[in-house]
Design a protein around this nucleic acid. Structure first.
Lengths: 197, 197
DNA sequence: TATCATAATAACACACTGTGCTAAAAAGAT
DNA sequence: ATCTTTTTAGCACAGTGTGTTATTATGATA
């Protein structure tokens, strides 16, 4: 009966338009009206696909986090498990332009989630992400038998995910001090203190 | 010749009014108009003391960070240097309501500094803060001779300040997971791996 | 092919926001 | 009492998110 347009595809089109604005002018410029203009539609039309800005933000986050995940999936990791773990963790830190944008979107989103109920759930899902990944990395090291016996895995998990998040913060705000090399060194150093080789 | 009012005092009055709003309704509600109303003046009057919102934010940050610093100065630290270091580091993590507000103001500010030139300088000063403090703590441990020789102080400084910042992030966003006890444990655990007792 | 239900789109109103500018008020010095 | 400068108030402008209402388009049905 109705006019039928591919909903999901249109949402992706909008997400791409929003991303373009975020990339070039910063996230605070990605208003509903501006994104609509960039996507070539009226703001009313955009709001037919995303009825609130938070909803749009949510979709954008998911869309580009998925893209990041896929990017990682196609990466070749080192055979050496310690090196591989190091590489995976480094993937989470914003040391290139693309990841810097993703991270700042993530921070903005996280902060907004403190006062917006609509975002709370997603925030939990995403903060759990780092935690779960840190855990996986520790499990790999355990399985390969290179994790020191003295390591308290429970605390280590919390420490590692905090360390990664903190490195992200500094890499984003102080790229002059926390250069990619320095970040890499710190992560490598941290892992060495946990392993027996 | 002119009407004379204590400029600094009025700015503090405004900062207190702003803080009240931030505390009760969140920082995004602390608009110029609302803060002015809370302080009992017109928005035009407020803008005579802070010509932009960033300027106001800047002052508020300084004012309440100073308050936090003074609060710490009046604290009694443990005699045991390791314990004392632990306590100081714990001061930086938002485990109570007051510090949570301070931290979220700080994050908002930091993120805004990425796109606002007016805030860049202050951001550097404040990110340096954690770094310098982490350094001081390591120096204390070195002086007391309890820091392990195997520790690479340069990397340790970066790691410690990232860890603290990351713990702050998690404590703010996931107080359900990163409880005060857990935060304390992780910091304590981290310090133990650096020290010989 | 004409009708009709519904999806898609557009357009407007409302209450906000930060900021620039201008006019009025207040008050100390002459 | 007058002058000068600070302080205050108020308005205008462009922008924001969101709610509501009308219009257009479309595909299935009769």
């Amino acid at each position: 009966m109705p006019k039928i347009v591919n909903h999901e595809q249109k949402r992706k089109l909008i997400a791409e338009a929003a991303w373009k604005i975020i990339k070039n002018e910063g996230i605070e410029k990605a208003s509903i009206r501006k994104v609509a203009a960039e996507a070539g539609m009226s703001s009313g039309a955009l709001r037919h696909y995303f009825s609130t800005q938070d909803e749009m933000l949510l979709f954008i986050m998911d869309y580009f986090f998925d893209a990041g995940k896929k990017r990682s999936d196609h990466k070749e990791w080192s055979k050496d498990p310690l090196k591989a773990v190091e590489e995976v963790l480094l993937e989470l830190v914003p040391i290139d332009e693309e990841k810097k944008i993703e991270t700042s979107v993530w921070w903005i989103f996280a902060l907004r989630s403190l006062t917006s109920d609509a975002l709370k759930e997603k925030k939990d899902e995403l903060t759990d992400g780092t935690y779960v990944l840190a855990n996986s990395m520790l499990e790999i090291l355990t399985q390969k038998g290179i994790l020191l016996d003295s390591v308290n895995v429970d605390l280590e998990r919390s420490r590692l995910s905090a360390l990664i998040e903190g490195m992200s913060f500094h890499a984003l705000l102080r790229p002059d001090v926390y250069t990619p090399e320095m970040v890499k060194e710190v992560i490598s150093y941290h892992l060495k203190t946990l392993c027996n080789k």
